[in-house]
Simulated assay, not measured.
Amino acid sequence: MFEWTTGGYDAAVREQIRGWLAEDIGSGDITTETTIPGDSRSKAVIHVKESGIIAGLPVARLVFDVVDPSLVFEAKVQDGERVDKGTVIAIVEGSTHSLLIGERLALNLMQRLSGIATKTRMFVDALEGLPVRLVDTRKTTPGHRLLEKYAVRVGGGANHRFGLYDAVMIKDNHIKGAGGIKAAVEAARRKIPHTMKIEVETESLAQVEEALACGSDIIMLDNMAAAMMKEAVARIKASAPHVIVEASGGVSLDTIHAIASCGVDVISVGGLTYSFHALDISLDLNAKKGGESL
Results as ranks from 00 to 15, higher is better:
E231P: 11
H257A: 13
H194K: 10
D166I: 00
N223R: 11
S114F: 10
A44I: 12
L71I: 14
I46M: 11
G7T: 01
Y274I: 06
V48M: 08
H242D: 14
A226L: 15
D284K: 10
F73D: 14
A55S: 03
D172T: 09
G129Q: 07
H277P: 01
A227M: 00
Y9H: 15
E74L: 11
I30M: 13
V48W: 00
W20T: 06
D24H: 12
S275Q: 09
V208S: 00
S95A: 05
N159Y: 01
G28K: 01
S293T: 15
L99W: 02
G115M: 06
L147M: 11
G8H: 12
L21M: 13
P142N: 09
G56H: 05
K176Y: 13
G86K: 06
A22V: 13
V13E: 07
I170D: 02
E81Y: 06
M169P: 06
I91C: 14
E23W: 04
K49H: 01
D10G: 10
S40I: 02
L99F: 06
L294W: 14
L221C: 03
T137E: 05
I175G: 15
D222R: 06
K76V: 14
D84K: 15
G156P: 04
D217Q: 00
K76S: 10
A213F: 05
G56A: 08
Q207D: 03
V63Q: 11
V245Y: 06
S293L: 15
V59G: 06
D29F: 04
G129A: 09
W4Q: 13
T34S: 07
D29W: 07
L107T: 05
S40V: 07
F162S: 02
T141Q: 05
V243F: 03
